[in-house]
């Protein structure tokens, strides 16, 4: 164990950590924002609304994220047409030349698919009593969705969603496959420079561990705040 390997490359790890954090945060934010309307569409009774969303989640949950990332980064860049757009300096297609954008797109599409299914499942599990009460109160379908269905479903989705965010954090390590120097990329660079795999990866692993614990803590706070009504009571009244 040679600690100088780590202390000598702290700046690389920090830069990698920052890239990992904002890549994951941004892709989860985009994925979640897209997943809420998509989940509503996913539980629609109309197959023309439900079908395309089901196809999207089926594709992105059915293929590995690494394959999606490589398809977007190397796959699209291989087409002559795309290269011609880059040469011409087309501002939209130029985005696909940047590894950061490719990673963000792949991650957001992937987590969006999972989050859609998580929220759709939660919507299906909203207790009938809540819906009947809303109907009895004379709410329109839109008002019911906004006031009852979504708030209730989103709260119930928090535990499953916390898993998804943690999986995204760890899954983001594949960003280094397309030249991004994220936390894993930094570890790989340190490793190949010093031939010290143990030090390089153990340190990266420790940082991921800390990040994961931080996420777990944040989601526990969120559950305490928004799922308090579903918690077991601390002092249940004695029976009888």
């Amino acid at each position: 164990m040679d600690l100088s390997v780590i202390t000598g490359s702290l700046d690389q790890y920090l830069a990698g950590l920052w890239l990992t954090v904002h890549l994951v945060a941004l892709s989860c934010a985009i994925g979640l924002a897209a997943a809420v309307p998509l989940a509503v569409a996913r539980v629609s009774r109309n197959p023309a609304v439900r079908g395309p969303v089901a196809a999207y989640t089926w594709f992105f949950r059915g293929t590995p994220m690494l394959v999606q990332l490589l398809l977007i980064y190397y796959g699209l860049g291989q087409f002559q047409w795309m290269q011609a757009q880059w040469e011409a300096g087309h501002p939209f297609w130029l985005l696909f030349r940047e590894p950061y954008f490719c990673a963000l797109l792949a991650f957001a599409l992937n987590t969006g698919a999972y989050t859609t299914e998580i929220i759709a499942g939660a919507i299906r599990n909203v207790p009938h009593g809540e819906i009947e009460a809303a109907k009895a109160a004379g709410m329109s379908r839109f008002v019911m969705a906004r006031r009852i269905l979504l708030p209730s479903a989103l709260r119930r989705a928090i535990p499953a969603y916390s898993n998804e965010v943690i999986l995204m954090l760890q899954g983001s390590s594949i960003a280094s496959a397309i030249t991004l120097v994220d936390l894993t990329g930094a570890a790989r660079n340190v490793y190949s420079k010093h031939f010290a795999p143990f030090e390089a990866f153990v340190f990266a692993g420790l940082i991921y561990l800390v990040l994961t614990f931080a996420l777990v803590g944040l989601f526990q706070l969120a559950e305490r705040r928004w799922l308090a009504h579903l918690r077991a009571q601390r002092n249940p009244r004695p029976v009888g």
Binding site: Y74, G77, R97, P99, S176, A177, T179
Partner: peptide, 18 residues
């Protein structure tokens, strides 16, 4: 300096203009 895991990937990105 952009680092790749495989030499072939660097040529791919050279060919694509990245």
């Amino acid at each position: 300096v952009v680092r790749y895991a495989k030499q072939d990937e660097a040529y791919l990105d050279l060919a694509s203009g990245r």
